[in-house]
Design a protein around this nucleic acid. Sequence first.
DNA 1: CTACAGTACGGAAACGATTCCGAAACGTCG
DNA 2: CGACGTTTCGGAATCGTTTCCGTACTGTAG
Lengths: 343, 343
Amino acid sequence: MAAVRRSSRATIRDVARHARVGIATVSRALNDDPGIAPATRARVLAACETLGFRRSSLARGLKLGATDNIGVAIMSRHAPVILNPFYAEVIGGIEEVLEDAAKHLLISSLKRGDDLLELASEGRVDGLLVVGCDVAPQVLAQLRDAALPVVLIDNAFDGITSVVIDHHGAGRQAGRHLLAGGGTRFAFVAENLENPNFRARLGGFRSALQEAGSQLSPEAVAAGGDSWDGGFVAMQRVLSALATPPDAVFAANDPAAMSALRAVRERGLRVPDDVALLGVDDIHLAAHHVPPLSTIAFDKRGLGRTGASHLLGRLAGHDVPALTVLATELVVRETSRSGDGAR
Amino acid sequence: MAAVRRSSRATIRDVARHARVGIATVSRALNDDPGIAPATRARVLAACETLGFRRSSLARGLKLGATDNIGVAIMSRHAPVILNPFYAEVIGGIEEVLEDAAKHLLISSLKRGDDLLELASEGRVDGLLVVGCDVAPQVLAQLRDAALPVVLIDNAFDGITSVVIDHHGAGRQAGRHLLAGGGTRFAFVAENLENPNFRARLGGFRSALQEAGSQLSPEAVAAGGDSWDGGFVAMQRVLSALATPPDAVFAANDPAAMSALRAVRERGLRVPDDVALLGVDDIHLAAHHVPPLSTIAFDKRGLGRTGASHLLGRLAGHDVPALTVLATELVVRETSRSGDGAR
DNA sequence: CTACAGTACGGAAACGATTCCGAAACGTCG
DNA sequence: CGACGTTTCGGAATCGTTTCCGTACTGTAG
C-alpha cells in the first residue's frame, strides 16, 4: 500500500500512479502545458517531489530529438587541451554563453578526424563548436554536409559558419607599429612557419613593411621549433645570419617573443633601446613579464562567446553571418615604443 | 526502389532493410556478437557504411542505462571555471584518464547546489566528479544517497569517495622549511581565512612552529580580501600591526605570495635576505616570477587523474579507497633559503 | 431536456536502440 | 529416415518520455 522506495529511479509512471492521474497528465504538468487544472498540476508536482522524480534526459532527448548538449571539439594530438591557455580562454567564453542558455558543455579533445565525425553523428550533441585550425579539409567537408549545426572557431571553411581572428591585420598592425617606433631592420621569429595563423601574421607584417618601402630579407625570418625554446632558437638564427642585428622584431606569438628576448639580451642588446620586440596573443604572462611585453591582443574569450552565440542562433533557426572576423588591438608595453610619444 | 537518401539520419531499421536482415542481426553485427555468420556481418557493416549510419547514443543509452558521459561539476559563483588555472590542471588530468576510457567529458560550472543535484539525477551522466570544497554539506548528503557514483576532488565527505591534498601537511612543510631557513618571526597571509583549505594550511603551519617552540601571534595572521591584491593588503596589515617586520612569511597560495612580495618590497625589505617568502600551489607563474617563487607544489593533474580513475573503478564495480590523500612537495626557489645549503 | 462548445484528462503510439525467446536451416548420428 | 543439437537469424517487447487522438465531463443556450 505504502509507496515502496524503489532502488532504481522513479519513472513518470510511478508519479502518475502516485498522483492518481495518467502519464500524459504528468508530462503536461512538467512541461507547463496550459490544458491542465491547477489542482491536478499541484498534485502531480507534489508527487514528483515526494518520489524524488526527475525526467530522464535520455528518454526525453530521444523523443524530442534534442539533448541540450553542445559539443566543443578541439583537435589536438598533444596533451589535454584545457591546459593550453588559449583554448582555456576560448572555452571560458563558450561556457559563459552556454550557461545562460542552460546548455551543457561536452568537451572533447580529439586526435583523429574520424572521432570528430563520430561525435557529430552520434546524436550526443545538438551542435558542435570546432576550435582550432588543425582539422583536415575533407573532414570539414563532411561536417558541412552533416545535418548537425557546426560553428568553426579560429578557422574558416566555405559553407560552415566561422569565427576567426584577423591574423593578417594583426601582422599589419605590428608592422606599422614597429615602423612608427623607428624600426629600419626588421625580423620575424616563430616556432614554425607552417601554422596558417602564423603565416597570415607574417603576411600582414610583410605587406605593412612593403607599403612603407621596407622589406623583410629571407635571413630575417626564422623558425626555431615547436618547444619552449622555439623563439630563442629562431632569434639566434636570425642574429647569426644577419650582418647587423635587427632593430625591430615581430614574434609570431608571446611565448616566442619572450623566448626571443632572452636571445637578444644574451647577444648584449637592450630592449627596447637597441631592438624593439612585439608579440601576439597578450597571454596572461605578457603583462607580468619583465619587462612587460608589447603585444597584439585579441579577445580570446569573445571568440568563444560569438562562436557559441552563433551556434545557439543556428539552433534557434536564425540566420547568422557566415564569417565573422574579430579585430585585434595593439598593446604597447615596455618592449617597444609608440612612434608619437616622446620619452 | 533505390535507397532514397533520407533527410534525417538513417536508423537501424533502414540498415536492416538495406542489408536484407532483421534489426536484431544489425544490432548484433554492430556489437560484435559471436552468433552471427561472417558473411552476414560483412553485409550489414557494408550497409552501415553506404547509408552513413551511426547508432543513436540516446536510444542506446536509454536501453542500456548508460551514457558514457562523465560529469565534472565545479561549484563556482564567479567567472567560468576553466579560466581558473587550478581547475584547468585538474580537468586536464581528468581528461587524460577519460579519453583513454572513451568516455565523454561533460563540464558544468554550477552556481547553486540544486543544479548539482539535478545534474546527478537527470541521467545525463554515468558518474560525477565534483571538484572543489565550495559545496554545502546537505547537498553532499543528498549526493551520497543518490544512485549515481560520485567522487569528490579536493574535498572530503563521509560516505563519498574523496581525493584530497594534504593541506595540513603542506602547512607543516612550510613551517619546517622556514624554521630551517633561520626564520624567527613568522607570519601568515591569505586572501581570506574562511576557505577550509587555507585553514588547514594555517593549522599545519602553526603545528610545525609549535613543535619548534615558536608561534604565530594573532597580528601576524591576516586576510586581505578575495582579489588580485588580497596578499598585498594582507601583508600590509601584518607589517603595520607588527612592531618589527616578520622574517618568514607563509602565504596561503602563490598569488597571495607574489602579491605579498610587492608589499614587502615597498616597505624596503629584501627577499629572501630580510624576509623569506613561501607560497603554495606552484602555479605556472611561480617559476617565471622575478624572483622565482619558493612554494609547496602538489600534483594538480594527478588529483584529476586519480579522481577520474577512481570513478571509472566504481563504474566498473571495483572497490576503491574511500579517501585518498595526495602528498605535497617543497620547491625551493629564490624567495627562501634551504636550511642546510650555504648561501 | 437536448445539443454543443470547450476543458480536462487517459490510452496508446511513437522515438531508436538492445535482447529475450522462438524458429528455421543444417549436419550428424543412431 | 527421424530425432536432436547447433548455428543463425527475426519478431516483439522494452527502456522513459512526448504527443496525438478520443472521451468524459461541465456549463450554457436554444
